[in-house]
């Protein structure tokens, strides 16, 4: 098989089955363990719109199902954005958090939680709207600043400004914390990242954004390969460098905004999962883009499972688990790479 070959249908089915299996396990396990049989019946009732009466079935359909779906979709989204930014900026350390977009989104969401700020007309998705808006504004600010400093919009300028901006946004968040004393607990818990209490409309929003962004990024897979090899090489082979860069950054920042608004900052997923997936399928985005979706979903599903069960009935924030696991895995991967080189 050639290194850049696409996945076969069988391989796609295999990956989908893996994600479904992980979903089933995560639906079944928790503070209360539920048999797969009961889950099947509850889901059957849900999809046939029959009445759902038993408390167990209600837990499955209205508590666990949205949460587990949100976890899988968030994992896929974060990992996809990591892949896109690492390819685009040719930097394995790039992701939403290095670029400042996550911090911007967090700031928007924190403002909503603390003061009830809202985007007019977005009452239903107040926090989401604010996070997307702030993610987008952050990106505009970062890019226009980068553009003023360096007309070519070169990669290291973007990353440097992103890091500075992250610090700035973090300082503003601390300021909000200091002012809004009565909401400190809510804010702190949210910033640690949690997908508990996600409802189905949010899941739907996440799913729609993820599908759209996946399609855009998969269509740009050759361009992402060119960027990952080198930006000036991309320019000489005829890639419209500026247009591609803007498209990727915009769609990725919108997706990060949605994800952060729903689940808080869940660290390291966008950094570690692409690394692991790249070890298995190689750096070609023909395979990396789809594989990172499945890899991200499975990784976050298991991280969430651990968060829910390890000190049950107490629940840990999922962001704590991913950061703990992610940091260790990352150091290990890095160490392996340095030793191999």
């Amino acid at each position: 098989m050639k290194t850049g070959d696409r996945f076969s249908a069988v391989q796609y089915v295999g990956m989908i089955l893996l994600v479904l299996a992980a979903l089933a396990v995560c639906l079944s396990l928790g503070s209360v363990s539920i048999s797969l049989d009961t889950i099947g019946k509850a889901l059957g009732k849900f999809f046939s719109q029959a009445d759902i009466n038993s408390p167990l079935e209600r837990i499955i359909v209205f508590v666990r199902l949205p949460r587990v779906l949100a976890v899988a979709l968030s994992g896929a989204a974060l990992s996809l954005c990591g892949v896109a930014m690492q390819g685009l900026l040719r930097n394995p350390l790039a992701d939403g958090s290095t670029l400042g977009v996550s911090s911007g989104a967090s700031l928007g969401a924190v403002l909503t939680i603390a003061f009830g700020f809202n985007v007019p007309g977005f009452a239903l998705f107040g926090r989401v709207g604010m996070a997307v808006l702030f993610a987008f504004l952050s990106l505009v600010l970062i890019l226009s600043l980068a553009y003023r400093l360096d007309r070519q919009l070169s990669t290291h300028t973007i990353i440097l400004i992103g890091i500075v901006y992250s610090m700035f946004a973090a300082a503003l968040m601390s300021l909000v914390l200091a002012i809004a004393k009565d909401r400190v607990r809510d804010i702190v818990f949210w910033t640690m990242g949690s997908l508990a209490g996600t409802d189905l409309p949010h899941v739907l929003l996440l799913a729609v954004s993820l599908i759209i962004v996946s399609i855009v990024l998969f269509r740009l897979r050759t361009e992402l390969n060119a960027f990952a090899i080198g930006e000036s090489n991309a320019e000489t082979i005829g890639v419209n460098v500026r247009a591609v860069k803007l498209t990727v950054l915009i769609v990725a920042s919108v997706l990060i905004g949605v994800t952060v608004a729903i689940g808080g900052t869940i660290g390291f997923v966008g950094l570690v999962v692409p690394h692991m997936v790249r070890l298995v399928v190689g750096p070609n985005h023909q395979r990396l883009v789809p594989a990172s979706l499945f890899g991200g979903a499975i990784f976050l599903l298991f991280a969430d499972l651990v968060a829910r069960t390890i000190v049950s009935p107490l629940e840990l924030p999922i962001g704590v688990i991913t950061s703990l696991v992610g940091a260790v895995v990352f150091v290990f991967l890095f160490w392996r790479q340095v030793r191999a080189a």
Binding site: T3, P92, N225, I229
Partner: peptide, 8 residues
């Protein structure tokens, strides 16, 4: 940047 093959 990454482990792309000569062919790629």
């Amino acid at each position: 940047g990454y482990h792309f093959s000569i062919e790629e």
